[in-house]
Design a protein around this nucleic acid. Structure first.
Lengths: 363, 363
DNA sequence: CTGAAAGCGCTTACAG
DNA sequence: CTGAAAGCGCTTACAG
């Protein structure tokens, strides 16, 4: 490889010869001509219509293979009002929960022979996706990001556009939804802390623009309340789920004289940040502090974090979302549905033995 | 939220009343009728054609707004042979390098008003993406995964289909490419180790199916060779870039009596695994072992890893890939181009002071 | 079983 | 400046 000075080396290799352009598109008419049948017959063979003479079918099949014919997506879409493409909106793709979810959704869509248009560009994504339904660029949309209510979404839902919400709820609720039970998940964590004798229990979450985080907080605070305990220093509700936020708030909370002994982070990414804060402050986890996250992303199991966390069944949720959307597309008038999966507490090394209770009989 | 026993609670809310279906699509003909002009005039207004009477234009604009018209993507695509959609193939989206790259590409595409179809389903993605070009579902494709040569890709490139390879090379090279200089990156790391007196230098990479990893290894081994040094225990070339592989091979290498003092991982994900291996073996980093990764994903800067690594300029590469693809689409016959960005060594805490050389004069 | 034909919603010469 | 019309490549009644 040649190098040139400067930041970038630019190698422009002039091709000596080159076809005039890309090969022209092969149409079903071309295939028909080659096979000596009508274009309609080619279309019938393509759709497995049984009413085609075997000899003709074979000739068409041969012509199809010989030409490498691929059906034109736009033409088919225009005729059938079905694109074979679904939209997915995911905000913060740098939070590893989303790649895992998108991957799972993509897998399901591929099985169904459906393409996936992905929007990750923040606020403009949702209106773009909704417009894509109206413009016939996609057959429907899966919204995976818990952003605040938007006008375009509301209008689309009122119009009964094929939309499925994943981990996100909307006022009115007249929309298909897949969630995990975030209230129950929050309770699970509070319960776990209480059962092991914690009383100084803190929480970091996202502000209430995120329904996901709000529900986790509600369940958590509700369960603490039942034990007569309040969140230590109050729940910290920040603008986003990120490592930087988890670390910053973690440093702040854990530097206090009256620091918590247990910390619930409403998202694994926050928990990783908080664990780093603890590490930087030379606090032992779980000796001085228990940390519990939410999502159980792959990284949570890495030995660097070994994070106790609440698992959402991502694969199941993706499968449910895709099949609900497909049903909604084919049967627009069916009643809306809400599938809610049970979360599960996965206990790892970031919780377990607290130094102060070591040897005590708190179960 | 109601809960039902069992794994999943299924809430089916029957909607009392519901519109017969989604609102019927608004066509430009509808808009024309409302504005009292011909459909052609609506199309002209939509395209900013200046030859439209101002009064009529205003009436059309009003009708457009009143109906909430959105142009039909399939019809436009069929007429213009342009979909406004580009395909992106990314294999292992769970490796955080890909989300960062996809995010950057998505951002560029959004700016250009282009949609992104994403394929992440492994081996079948590439043929699917190539077929999508032929089937007119996308205008072009960006291939970001260094998989082995495929027949369909070869054929597509020969056909001069609009394809840009990112971090991936192909025999013949008659295809637009964006890379960072992986050979130079490998050399940078070797050079850094050598300069600080390391002699027991190991490497973990991917097997040669990945051109990326191969180039990094070549530069690395080449530079070591110039100093008369061979990779300690030979380069370990595994099937994939993953935390699990990095940890497993790390445990294996670092458990040996004659363990290396410096380890180059051809990918950050491998490096995180290796760091975890070192941690599990109670080795001090960088006291006993230096670890250097490749990519500089966001996580590399987290204090849990604090990883010295080779940065690829992801945003620049994404921008280059998108603009190259757009040019290729509009000018299919322009000469192919190869842009190669310079990598940069980012020094962090996973390297720096080796216990054995501490106080010595090795610069 | 088969082909000619209508029509999906656009864009854009073409004729006025 | 404007509208009528052709045509992009399909699918699918329709008539035979």
């Amino acid at each position: 490889m040649k190098r040139v000075k400067g930041d970038v080396c630019l190698i422009t290799s002039l091709m000596a010869k080159r076809a005039p352009c890309c090969q022209p598109m092969v149409t079903s008419r071309d295939v028909a001509q080659l096979a000596g049948v009508s274009q309609a017959t080619v279309s019938r063979v393509l759709h497995g219509n049984p009413n085609v003479d075997e000899g003709r079918r074979r000739r068409v099949l041969e012509a199809l293979a010989a030409t490498g014919y691929v059906v034109n997506a736009s033409a088919r879409a225009m005729r059938t009002s079905r694109t074979g493409t679904v939209g997915v909106v995911a905000g913060r793709i740098t939070n590893p929960f989303y790649p895992e979810l998108i991957d799972a959704i993509g897998r399901e869509l591929t099985i169904a022979g459906t393409r996936m248009i992905l929007w990750t560009a923040g606020g403009s994504s949702e209106p773009a996706a909704v417009d894509a339904i109206r413009g016939g660029a996609v057959d429907g949309v899966i919204l995976t990001t818990a952003t605040s209510e938007s006008v375009s979404l509301k209008a689309a839902v009122d119009r009964h556009a094929p939309i499925v919400l994943v981990n996100r709820s909307i006022a009115g609720g007249s929309c298909d939804q897949v969630t995990s039970d975030n209230v129950a998940g929050g309770r699970l964590v509070a319960d776990y802390f209480l059962k092991h004798g914690h009383t100084k229990i803190a929480m970091i979450g996202q502000n209430d623009a995120s329904s996901t985080s709000r529900h986790r907080r509600e369940g958590f605070v509700e369960r603490l309340g039942e034990a007569g305990i309040q969140a230590h220093h109050g729940p910290k509700l920040m603008a986003e789920f990120s490592h930087a936020v988890g670390r910053r708030v973690g440093l702040e909370l854990l530097s206090r004289k009256d620091r918590p002994t247990a910390l619930f982070c409403a998202d694994d990414q926050l928990a990783f940040g908080a664990l780093d804060a603890a590490r930087e402050l030379k606090l032992s986890v779980p000796g001085d502090l228990w940390v519990v996250g939410y999502d159980d992303v792959e990284m949570a199991a890495w030995s660097s974090f070994d994070l106790t966390t609440v698992r959402q069944p991502i694969a199941d949720m993706a499968q449910a979302a895709v099949s609900m959307l497909r049903r909604r597309i084919t049967q627009p008038d069916r009643p809306t549905e809400h599938r809610c999966f049970d979360p599960k507490l996965i206990i790892r090394g970031s919780s377990g033995v607290l130094a102060s209770t070591r040897g005590s009989s708190v179960s």
